[in-house]
């Protein structure tokens, strides 16, 4: 089997976000980046499928400037065999539709049986690229996988997913498939020190986004970014001995001041 995982280099979820001077991007200096957490589940699942199916190869692919080479190294250190970097030297591609177009174009010629993505990247939260690639490649797209069963002989995949309200769906499809990973799919491994050393010598293919032959024109323009400020009352009450008067006071405030309780 041939598997490829789309991964993204995103600011750490614990990072405080500040804006760049032009207010069209975030301030990128002094940010520590990680692999988007949902992509870690995707890579882990691909590696587990390889362990069960000898002869399988796992590739990782990303799009972005030179810096995002790091996220490919993370994927290789976790155990992926090879990597593809679609270079966007000045980070000009911000529209997820265009990102999906570039990724789909490269993935199309790779003869992959399974494409994995995270359910969304936790920077722009578009929830778009995985399903867009599935549609562009005209393959079976299955999102939010909480469990994946692969039958390599029958070339079939079954995905279990849970959506709003605890509704459970079992979705099936035949190779090639695209699966997006939900939290809970697995426990991603950490890259080991030997893994990190080996990653340095694994192949990374570089391609330029501008040379893929896809339409890079976007009809989506980010006009302005703002950091929302929520005014909070910060009225903190001590529970005291038995807590009763504090609780009464809180209920009163919620009813008469905040008006959020009847």
């Amino acid at each position: 089997m041939r598997i490829i995982c789309c991964v993204k280099h995103v600011p750490d979820t614990n990072a405080q976000i500040q804006l760049a001077a032009n207010k069209k991007d975030i301030a990128r200096e002094a940010i520590s980046y990680v692999m988007s957490p949902y992509d870690e589940f995707a890579v882990e699942e691909a590696l587990r499928i390889r362990e069960k199916n000898p002869g399988t190869t796992v590739a990782v692919i990303t799009l972005g400037p030179e810096r995002v080479d790091q996220v490919l190294r993370t994927g290789l250190a976790m155990g992926a065999d090879e990597a593809i970097h679609i270079l966007d030297p000045d980070s000009s591609i911000t529209d997820p539709l265009i990102v999906a177009r570039c990724l789909a174009q490269v993935i199309k010629s790779g003869g992959y049986d399974i494409v994995f993505c995270g359910r969304q990247a936790v920077d722009n939260d578009a929830f778009q690229v995985g399903s867009a690639i599935a549609t562009m490649l005209n393959v079976a797209g299955m999102t939010l996988a909480g469990k994946v069963e692969v039958d390599a002989n029958a070339k079939k995949v079954k995905v279990e997913r849970i959506v709003e309200g605890g509704t459970r769906q079992i979705i099936s499809g035949s190779f090639p498939v695209l699966i997006t990973a939900q939290k809970g799919l697995n426990e991603p491994r950490f890259a080991s020190l030997p893994g990190i050393m080996k990653a340095k010598s694994k192949p990374v293919t570089k391609k330029n986004a501008a040379e893929l032959g896809v339409d890079l024109n976007t009809k989506m323009i980010i006009e302005l970014l703002e950091v929302p400020v929520y005014q909070r009352k910060k009225r903190v009450i001590q529970a005291g001995e038995d807590g009763k008067s504090a609780v009464k006071q809180l209920i009163e405030l919620l009813r008469t001041e905040a008006k959020v309780l009847e």
């Binding site: 903190v236 001590q238 529970a239 309780l261």
Partner: peptide
């Protein structure tokens, strides 16, 4: 959390939350 909330009670939740339920 107390610097980012509207109302807070500093106390044991196992005491406060049941009291809140009861009082409501």
């Amino acid at each position: 959390v107390f610097k980012k909330c509207d109302y807070g009670i500093v106390g044991d939740l196992f005491q406060i939350v049941p009291l809140l339920t009861q009082e409501l």
